[in-house]
Amino acid sequence: MNTKIITTTLTALVLTLSVSTAALAADITLLNVSYDPTRELYSDFNKSFAAYWKGKTGDTVTVKQSHGGSGKQARSVIDGLEADVVTLALAFDIDAIAEKGLIKPGWQKELPHNSSPYTSTIVFLVRKGNPRKIKNWDDLIKPGVAVITPNPKTSGGARWNYLAAWAFALHQPGGNEAKAKEFVSKLLKNVPVLDSGARGSTNTFVQRGIGDVLLAWENEAYLAINELGPDKFDVVTPSESILAEPPVTVIDKVADKHGTRKVAEAYLNYLYSDEGQKIAARHYYRPINSKIPTKLAKVKLYKIDDKAFGGWQKAQKTHFADGGTFDQIYAAGK
């Protein structure tokens, strides 16, 4: 249904564009400011989009990439990094950009599925053969299990990790806020290193050999296995986790200034196309189009908009702002 609408709008868009600019093929540059784990996805996707766009309009589009921690990237855009589009780890970071007036309010309704063309979740990466027998979240709080996760203050992925653990504890029989906090604080006691970003954590786990289990984006976990050898690690998918929706949007102010709105919108829409969805699936993201096959295991997924969290603005304030539950746990630990 959605795809249909998109394809129609796309075709319409492309038609108008090709009519208006067919005569002069242009060189267009887009800047996509993204978070850390999407490097491989977008290097693939950009090529595919460039070919598609060339075929439709004759224009050559080069998409430049910038990657880093989601919060840092959002801040760079706020401070003037001229991104035509952003594809970040969480809506909260894009909200922060919108707050400064660079994006029109209500941006998350512009594109289908909360403007998240693919989703992901949090899984465990363990050492080959799973020597610690880690199956689910409650195995992570056992004494002696070393868990690697980045710092939620600086890493978007880490916030999803934290909330996934929280959601798990909350939904256990007899679960409540206090128990969830206790669960998460036990989990954090098992964390020996808090890197500042998701990639830093993966390097600590993989390259430095520290920890029994890495909490990671699903796509990061599979990528690590692909890049570093399936003989070294296994992915363990817990019974339940959180639905991570990394949203995308056009930065209105910048795109209008650059005159790149059309191609920027087409770029994001292409993420929703069959081809875009296939590329996302190939990089172990969960495509939102159910027709696109994926090898990823079915998991019960909680949402950030569920009552337990009440959306990103609230979750951020409760858990990660100064004095939030994360700080409380560390302050109490002292």
């Binding site: 959002a74 600086t154 020996p192 808090l194 990660f320 302050a331």
Partner: peptide, 30 residues
């Protein structure tokens, strides 16, 4: 330092990292 410090709050977190942390939370004045 960021590559070799454990960055654990209260234990191995250095002040420059804390500045970065504040920035990531959009807390410029902090």
């Amino acid at each position: 330092l960021i590559f070799i410090a454990g960055n654990m709050p209260m234990v191995s977190e250095i002040t420059p990292l804390l500045i970065i942390t504040k920035l990531e939370q959009f807390d410029y004045q902090g």
